[in-house]
Design a protein around this nucleic acid. Structure first.
Lengths: 208, 208
DNA sequence: CAGGATACGGAGTGATGACTCCGTTTGTCA
DNA sequence: TGACAAACGGAGTCATCACTCCGTATCCTG
């Protein structure tokens, strides 16, 4: 998943090894999402139906496994962003992506963590994924801004932060769809350009 | 701090014990904020200048210590909310509180956790603090809504979620004041009543 | 200030969890 | 199909950490 054959030094993995690696990534993502990054490697191994040894053969460290999961997530997100940024309708594309992120992020704090990692984490940064992701986001954002559908005073940094925040906020209300959509509405409205230059700071209009 | 003399079964603590307990709470809050809830009890003890034994005498469990810190935070927040809800200007009061929470929350993830706990955590719920906090918030919110300064389609639940999200978002950008205020602007704009019933979904209007 | 009660410090304990090692199994290639 | 390299499983190791226990120090009351 998200890993083509690289013309690399290392010989291709044996079939079972590939399967196991993939399954581990998958299962680990789930486990981290459900129980936080505190899950034991043994638990992950069990879920994947392999021995601990196998986990460590593929990922030299629990930390490395976490990274791999994050990078995987980020990669997929980046791809989705890129796909959407080709859209003819920059506004909808932008908001679709936003909703998509938030949806995936809810009840999956590992996801928000991945986003967080994108900004902060050294490994992720080194791997380049983080940069690609930021690039894709940038594209989506600026197009939507040029189309006048998103406020122009923010950049990718702020957008990433808001994405993280939104995921957390939604995560907070569980799966009550009403709350969820209200929260998203708040965020989306906030992201649109302020309707008038300034809707007046003071409440002179209509004294209650 | 935030603990008056209750007419309780337990005899008052000895002077040194009171000092230690307070200092522990203080130090623990700091430690949890800086390094996450993973900090060892020993580290907390060291910071407070006491032995581990003392930590466990005051808080039978690490978990209990965490709870105490959260409850403390929540209590203070609740007090601030209550104070503000008396204001003559419900709108500004509301937004002030919002900013206040976000400010305290940034770079202090323990804070966001406290908010989280308010919704989820059994102990906090049992202690009643969580309810008081929700009450205070409710007051602030409904007044601001009645004054037409905050969108009317949300309730306390959503507000709490947004507060958590906002804290996380701001935490994300470190202390860059520009990013920070941009993010807050997004949130606040989103919380205001939608200016027109709906600013039009399609981009026909004014192609720049 | 003496005596008892209350707290304290910190070495010790048990559990848990990341990571290693090696005998056994499985895939692959000729 | 045979033989060898590549992978596997999982018992074992070592460090960490929450929590206990008890001899010692500190506070308080009369």
């Amino acid at each position: 998943m998200s890993q083509a054959s690289d013309p690399a030094p290392t010989r291709a993995l044996r079939a079972d090894a590939q399967r196991n690696r993939a399954r581990l990534l998958e299962v680990a993502e789930e486990a981290f999402a459900e129980r936080g990054t505190g899950v034991s490697t043994e638990e992950i191994a069990r879920r994947a139906g392999v021995g601990v040894g196998t986990v460590f053969r593929h990922f030299p460290t629990k930390e490395a496994l976490l990274q791999a999961v994050f990078i995987d997530r980020l990669t997929r997100l980046g791809e989705q962003a890129t796909a959407l940024s080709d859209s003819e309708q920059p506004g909808p594309a932008f908001f679709t992506f936003f909703a998509l992120v938030v949806d995936q992020g809810s009840s999956k704090n590992a996801f928000a963590d991945a986003l967080t990692a994108a900004g902060i984490n050294a490994e992720a940064a080194a791997s380049g994924v983080s940069g690609e992701f930021a690039g894709a986001l940038m594209e989506l954002l600026t197009r939507a801004q040029r189309a006048g559908e998103v406020r122009s005073d923010i950049g990718v940094t702020e957008l990433k932060a808001v994405l993280v925040g939104a995921s957390r906020a939604v995560e907070q209300v569980g799966d009550d769809p009403t709350s969820r959509s209200q929260i998203i509405a708040i965020l989306l409205d906030g992201l649109r350009p302020p309707v008038t230059p300034r809707p007046a700071v003071n409440p002179t209009a209509a004294p209650q």
